[in-house]
Amino acid sequence: MDIQVIIDNLPLYLQGLRTTIVLVISSLLVGLCLAIPIALLAASKNKWASALPKAYIYFFRGTPLLVQMFMIYHGMGQFEAVRASFLWVIFQEAWACALVAFALNTAGYTGEILRGTIEQTPYGEVEAAKSCGMSNAQIYRRIILPSTFRRALPAYGNEVIFMLHGSSLAGLITIVDLFGAAKIVNARNFVPFESFIAAGLFYLAITFMIVWGFKKAEHHWHAYLRPRES
């Protein structure tokens, strides 16, 4: 083990760490914004309304993230219409391609998580809201969605970790994230053990922090489910 190589390249790793964190947080935010309407439509009883979002979820959960990312990064240039439009400015950037792929992917997974929890909302809660005279929109905003987010918390924690791990694919399309940094260090010094283990430790540390954060969040948001402390 040659730790000196890692210490010398620490700035590169830290730059990669920053890219990874920014990439994961922005794709999660965009993905969540997309996931809410997808989940609401997929959970609807109207077959026509739920068909398209369900197909979306099926596709993004059923195919590898790598293929989805390549479809956007390598694939978009195939279309003359894309190359001629302003979209080409976006899809020329590896960074933007990764962000779009990750956001669409996590929207599929998060959509499925939320769909499940929306459908499992205890009907009594909805009934109570109806008998209080709330409109449909009010029921969604005040009752169903808050309760859904609470119950989706543990599953969403797993999805965040999954997204963190998936984000390492960005290193394959020239982005210098944690994995990309490790790849560069390995290529320059030919130290596969040191370079990839260092990246692995960074990922491990972030994973622990996410797990810890969600534990805290569940402690807060699931307070009413905790057994009473005597």
């Binding site: 970790i161 963190l164 791990h165 998936g166 984000s167 390492s168 694919l169 290193g171 394959l172 994995f179 490790a182 790849k183 390995n186 596969p192 053990f193 990839f196 283990i197 990246a199 692995g200 990922y203 491990l204 994973t207 622990f208």
Partner: peptide, 21 residues
């Protein structure tokens, strides 16, 4: 814990390139 905390891609390159050495 280690496997679930580290991305598959990192483990795969580690084992492939590291294994070669």
């Amino acid at each position: 814990t280690i496997i679930r905390g580290i991305p598959d891609l990192v483990l795969m390159t580690l084992i492939f390139f590291g294994g070669q050495i």
